[in-house]
Structure formats: structure tokens, C-alpha cells
Design a protein around this nucleic acid. Sequence first.
DNA 1: GGCACAGCATTTTAGACAGCATGTC
DNA 2: CTAAAATGCTGTGCC
Length: 726
Amino acid sequence: MKVADLPLPQTLKTRYAERGIENLYPPQEACVAAGIFEKKNLLCAIPTASGKTIVAEMVMHRHIADGGKCLYIVPLRALASEKFEDFSGKGAKVGVATGDLDRPDAYLGRNDIVVATSEKVDSLLRNGAPWLSKITLLVVDECHLIGSPDRGATLEMVIAKLLMKNPGMQVIALSATVGNPGAIAGWLNAALVTSEWRPVDLREGVYFEGAIHFAEREDRTVAGKSRYDDLNLVLDTVAEGGQCLVFVSSRRNAEAFAKRAAGGLKLSEPALDTASAAIEHEAQTDLGRTLALCVRNGAAFHHAGLSSAERHIVEEGFRNGSIRVISSTPTLAAGLNLPARRVVIRDYLRFGDGGMAPIPVGEYKQMAGRAGRPHLDPYGEAVLIAKTADAVNDLFENYIDAPPEEIASQCNAENALRSHVLSLIATAFCRSRPDVLAFMDRTFYAYEHQGRRSTIHETIERVIDWLCDKEMVTALGDRLEATEYGTLVSRLYIDPRSAETIVDALAKAPDFADLGLLETLARTPDMLTLYLRKDDYEVIYRFIDEHIDELWTGLPYGDDEMQAFFCSVKTAMLLLNWSEEVTEAMICERFNVGPGDIHNKVETAVWLIHAASRLASLFKRPFAQPIADLEIRVKHGIKKELLPLIKLRGIGRVRARRLFNAGLTTPEELRAAGIGALVPVLGEKTAASVLAQVEGKGGGKTAPPEKDEAPRSRQAFLSAFCGDEE
DNA sequence: GGCACAGCATTTTAGACAGCATGTC
DNA sequence: CTAAAATGCTGTGCC
């Protein structure tokens, strides 16, 4: 089937032709045959890289040509940006909406295609974005994620809400291969296309004692260049001109393997030196220095502790072929499109609740699917490593030949329902108990449990009772209505339990204290706390003792409660360090985290502090202002004294501190000092722009993020935080 | 006394969504 | 349903 014959706008056909896309892949033809251009719903469950995105894109352009509007839901922000780039420049107006990339609602609605994360869509629904009712085509990427325990319910609810809101809307769901595609297709009233077809041949095998064993072809011997099996697998592929992805179970393993690979590869190329230098330039941290060292030799590691700059350099280096191997935690498994000729799934056991557990088949398939770069590799290889002869068969049985898991709805979980039921009521999607039950009847959960006994009605009743008890919802007979509090919680998009934790703490707090609030926020279910290490206990205990007046809660009883408390205090300590201008490197060292972790914690904290300030203006007025100040401080990582300066555009953490230390502490003082005094501190260009602002009565702030090069302190390790001497 | 090393004990452990209010080149 | 690997420490044996 030829692209040229499809009912598509000429612009798109031209763009495809330029990229050499002339014929459809077989699964894509099946999608066309399933009636995607006749507004039929579709569930397309085929392997990665077999052209799902293009199927969706073609249908989107068909809709746009007919005056429609498309919403493309993705699970990750990075994916949203990637799809945004993909779809842009092909004749459609494209927009992104994620928590960090946002446009005003009305502006967003002017696009033909909006790419958004599921949570963002949910939030837009809660905040009543009017253009959502104009969506004629919904594309759900990675649709199998409705089975994910933590975020699946949101995706399912968003789909259900949109289906209810826009009855004529076409749905295209794209999914990895799953165990029960028929069930999902049935729920969506969609035609089902499944296929194992891939543009690049995928060979799945198990390595054991010097050779990769395949089911349907000869073993492949791997030269024993080193004493490490995993390294040999990498060197083998690199020698052949390919690249390698190695999936491991922990950050430490990822780093250790990258070092080993760097030693084995010992490459030396200008491109690698450039990338390494770029990382070194960024790096004030041990992690960065280690990474730079690895990259110089052609290897890298990848996990959530990397700063976004470091991640970007590693991904780009791999994409352009200079970095030969990345050892990665699951970050890369589900994220960006970063294929490699050989994928080594080295660790198929991962730590979880109650010990090491084998990763799910679906996750294996996802990682294996990364093997083989279309048009670049002659084939792709996915290799598991067996440690014993017995394991070889087990691995074939449990992964390579195993059927992927079935997807199950996560909508009967009380934790998820609390938030979603509240939003249904707050947005007047549902106005009574029967309404809520009727709505839930349209979910995948209900479809799955047709004619079977289920407990969801009881769960819903319990959740509604809880919401009433906490005064987020009022009930008058069957009629339900959200209170001002409940509406706010729904719009803030925080877990109702988090709201309760915050409101409760605010009510009990005698005086405002930064630490008190931060510890409260770290205790909410919306913030994951840091891991507690053995040596931390004593330090944290002493810290609590010294700061007991600033904490809004005393020592709890019970071991688990105590441990949770220590975790939240530790997390609050990190945030406090950050807002006291402790350097990134120092925080990394003290808390044993990476720059990426700091960023994540800070981002979550800023979101929750904002929520807290809104809740405070409802329940504890006097706290609203100090909370708003803290929000700015945590956002920029500055002490209180820099608050006046940070308001200026172009002034971030570093420059504000430099100005302050130069004796310029307010915009007024900057104006009085004049350009001559500013240039030595800020450089000519920034000085001029800042001066223009203070002379023009100061402007609003949309400052670019600043590089972190704050002054160094001499403290090291968490113990130094208390200023103690052992 | 000092060093090497076996063997036992302790420690550590993945990831990443979300607000708001503005207008835009 | 379910832990494993790396690191730290201690005691022993040997020179």
C-alpha cells in the first residue's frame, strides 16, 4: 500500500516522501484496513519501532483536514517533547502541555494537535479547559499503561472522561504487545490490530559460557576479551560496528558497568572528548566527573540521578554514534526512542517489596524491543545473561517464549479513587452517588468485571464517605457537591490525603517555620522521601532534637512511623539545604543523591508548597505570605535576603548572590549604583538588561534557569549539617 | 608486630506525573 | 511467592 494513495493532505505526503516513507509497513496497512480513515476506533498492539506513531499521525492529519482537533496522550514529559518535535513542521499547528511546558489554555486550544501527559490532560479537565470538548481524535500512546499500579488509573479515568464528554470522538490506542489486547479493544469499541512484525529482525537469545544461544539459529560465540561476560558482549558488538544498551538493576551497577566498559573500550575520539568536556563543564559533582571519565572512553551510564544536561549529552552522544554503550537503569527502557544493535538485559531481578523479584515479561519485551536501529543495523539482538546452565532454559521459558502479562484495571484502588472521585464531583461530571457509579460503569474496570462480582461499589462508597468526612464533599441525600476546599484540592491536583496532611499540620502549627512546612510536605503521599541510610539515624535524631520547635509534629510511636518520620525529616533537610544556598555538589555528597534527584525533589516541593499556600489562604491566612516566600526560595534555591533581587529577569541563584555579596541588595540599590557598578558583577549584556528593568520600574520574571556555581562551603557529609564535631 | 586473607556481618537497593497565571513573533 | 551483591570487619595464620 502506497502512502501516495492514502486520503492525506499533500503537505504530509510530501514530508513523508522527503523522508523516504513511500510504502506502509504491513501492520500499518492492517490499521488502514481496520478503518482508521473511516473514523473507526483502533487498538494497535504491535512492537516498538514498527510505525505506530505514523499511523496515529496520518489519522490526525485526516482529522485536521476535516476541521478536527487532536489530542495525543503520552506517559512521559520527555516523550511529549519528542512527539512534539516529530509532529511539528508537517503542516499542523502543534502544542505541548506538560507540567513544566505549559501555555495558557486558550492558546493551547488553537493548536490542531496537542501533545500532553495523561496527568496534564486530567488537570486540564479538572480546570475546565474549554477546547477539550472540541477534540475529535484521541490518541493514547503506550495505552497498556492503564495497567500500571501508580499511574494507570489516571490514564483510564482520562480516557473514560473524554469518551463521555465527546461521544463522537475517534480513539486510536497504541500499545505494546500485551496479553489481553482483545479486552482493551472491546472496552474502546475498537478494531484490533496485533502483529509481531518488525522493520529490523530481532534475535532474542541467552548468553551462557562464551556463546549466545538462540532458539531458531546457531549459537553465536562471543570472544572472551576480558574476564567479564557482560563486557565481552559489549566489546563483541562494538568490534562489529554496533552499539550496545545494557540494562542493570541499580544505579551503582550502572555506574560500575560504565566504568568497566570504559576501561575495556579505551576509545579516543574528538567527538567523545567534546561530549566529555561538556559534561565536565556541567559537573560540579562526583557523578558528573565519573560520567565524564566514562564518556571520554566511549561508555556512559544513565539513571535518574543525572542532571538533565548530563542526560541530554549522553543520549545525544549515543544517537550520533560516538558513545558505544550505555548501561542504564529502567529510565531508558520506557522512555526515549534510543535503539541499539544489541541490548543486554543483564539484571532481570530487581529489588522491590520483600526482596529481589524478576521483572515482568512486558518490561523485558520493552527492553528487548530497543534492539536494532531501523535502516542502520542489519539486525537487532536482545541478550539475557544466564549464570547457570539451568538458567538458560528458565530464561527462554520465562522471558523469550513467555506471553506478555495481561493488563488489569487499577481503578478499584482506594488511593486512586479518592482523588478521581473527588474530581468527578468537583467538575460536576457526577452530581450524585448513582452518577458516580454510573460513570465508573464506563471504565475498563467495569468492562473487565462484567457479570462478575466486584467490590468497586463498596470502595466508591467508602471513598465518598471519606471525602464527606474531610469536608471536601457535602452530601444531601444522594446529591453530592464539592466544597470550596474540595474544589481547590481537585484543581491543585494533589492527593486528597496530602491536602488533609497539610491542612491538619497548618491547623496545629503554632508559628510558621520553613522546616515545619517542608517536613509536612515530605510526609504527604505526593512526595517520595529519600532512602534512609544506617549512618543517618544519629544525625537526623540530633537534628530533630535541635529543631524540635520548628517541626510541626513530635516524635511518633512505633518503628515504622519513626522511620517514616526520619525519612521526611531527611528530605526536608535536603530542601532546606537547597534554599540556604548549599552547593549542588555538597548536597549530592551529604545526601548521597545526584543532581537529577535534587531537581526532582525541588520540583515536587515547589508544586506542593504552592498547594500549601493556596490551602493556607483558605484555612490559615497568616501563613500564606511566608509560604509564598518559601516557594520562591525553594524554586530558586536562595536565602531570604535574595528575594528582592530574584524578581529581576536574568537574575538567578548565582547572580543574585554575586550582587548581594557586592553590596547590592535591592533593585533600588542597583539603580542607584548605575551601570559602572553592575558590569564587573554581571557582565556587560546582563548588566544593561537588568539596569533597564530597574529603571523601567522592574519587569516581570521569566528568567532562564541559572547554572549552579554557588560558593563552596567546607562542610561535607550529612553529619556536618548539624555543625557538630565527632 | 604486621600483613594477607578467608569468612562472616552489614549495608544498600528504579523511576518521575502534577499548579498557577500570563498572552504570542 | 521472593534477595543478592558489594563492602566492611574480625579473627586467624603466617612471616
